[in-house]
Design a binder for these strands. Structure first.
Length: 320
DNA sequence: GCGACAG
DNA sequence: ATCTTGTCGC
């Protein structure tokens, strides 16, 4: 998080007086326009306004936008820009194209992360490659700002019972950016993963159903060489072929890469291969564990992570 | 009006 | 993901 935030500020101070840039332009300089929303969030919390001239960052349609958070400070932002010689009419930059600055000299770090995903994605095994599936583990993370609370719940298949629970607290080192979730959550989850080959891990997020075929479930699978399944609550990419009652195929560029799985009347889940599990096995594991529309070990991990966060926060609030 | 993207 | 009061439905 520190490095990413610093990069956003580094870019912002490069915008000259009398010029403006956009959240998307800074995101592109960081390597991916997908980061534009988090650039906005970070600049909205800029602790050093003026020094870090976030008032020079506007919407891509030329509207001036807010200053210091959504719905706030638009007037102040217009004032500051006007004083710097930027002409504004009806809340829009007048000669937007000519005053727009995008020649940032910063490290496009997201490009490197994409390359890492592309390289590692070639190692994904999309067929059953595990011993006896003795355990199924659920992983999840809960946040309070940069405080991350991760949970692991271990379910014994033969005993049909939870046999282990672990939680851990870490500082998040990277923001949430769609398609880069793994870089936020893997450092938090790492110490909860032991490389046992008789355990299939369920991960809250996509597997190969990802723009580069390498969502967090696949990333964890390849990084730790363990079987994993991606179970997401919403779709990142892909097309649902035809909506059936229980199980519908999802295609990515024409290839079958996932299933929408649901219990009647409940929200759907999007299942895809993480690593060393076939799509058919992944779907059947999830279907078997479905209870009230949720996958049991994941639901338990979710609750555990939330509880850990709330009790930690309450304890600290009590201490003052 | 369209698109709007895991957690 | 999290922030949050009332409101709707079973």
């Amino acid at each position: 998080m520190k490095d990413f935030v610093r990069s956003v500020f580094d870019a912002t101070v490069q915008i000259p007086k009398g010029r403006v840039s956009t959240y998307g332009d800074i995101a592109i300089a960081l390597g991916d326009v997908a980061a534009s929303r988090i650039v906005g969030v970070i600049l909205a919390r800029n602790p050093r306004p003026i020094v870090v001239p976030c008032h020079r960052v506007v919407y891509s349609n030329g509207e001036v936008g807010w200053y210091g958070g959504k719905g706030r400070g638009a007037e102040r932002k217009r004032e500051l820009l006007s004083k710097e010689g930027v002409r504004i009419k009806d809340g829009r930059i007048e000669n937007f194209d000519s005053v727009r600055f995008a020649d940032f000299k910063i490290d496009p770090m997201l490009k490197d992360l994409r390359r890492e995903q592309d390289a590692m994605s070639r190692k994904v095994v999309e067929r059953d490659d595990f011993g006896k599936m003795k355990f199924i583990a659920g992983l999840d993370v809960s946040y309070a700002d940069d405080d991350a609370f991760a949970a692991m719940v271990l379910y014994d298949c033969s005993e049909d019972a939870v046999v282990d629970r672990k939680t851990i607290r870490r500082k998040a080192t990277f923001p949430y950016i769609p398609s880069y979730l793994a870089f936020r959550e893997i450092p938090v989850l790492a110490d909860l993963i032991d490389g046992r080959k008789d355990t299939v891990y369920l991960v809250d997020g996509q597997g190969v159903l990802h723009p580069r075929g390498f969502g967090i479930a696949s990333h964890i699978g390849v990084a730790f060489d363990i079987p994993t399944i991606g179970v997401a609550k919403s779709l990142l990419c892909g097309v649902i072929e035809k909506e059936e009652a229980k199980k519908s195929p999802i295609r990515l560029e024409g290839d079958l890469k996932g299933y929408l799985v649901r219990q009647s009347g409940k929200h759907p889940l999007y299942v895809s291969v993480g690593h060393r599990v076939s799509l058919e096995s992944a779907a059947s594991v999830v279907e078997k564990l479905l209870d009230k529309g949720k996958v049991n070990p994941l639901q338990e991990a979710h609750r555990l992570a939330n509880d850990a966060r709330k009790s930690a926060l309450n304890t600290e609030a009590a201490k003052g």
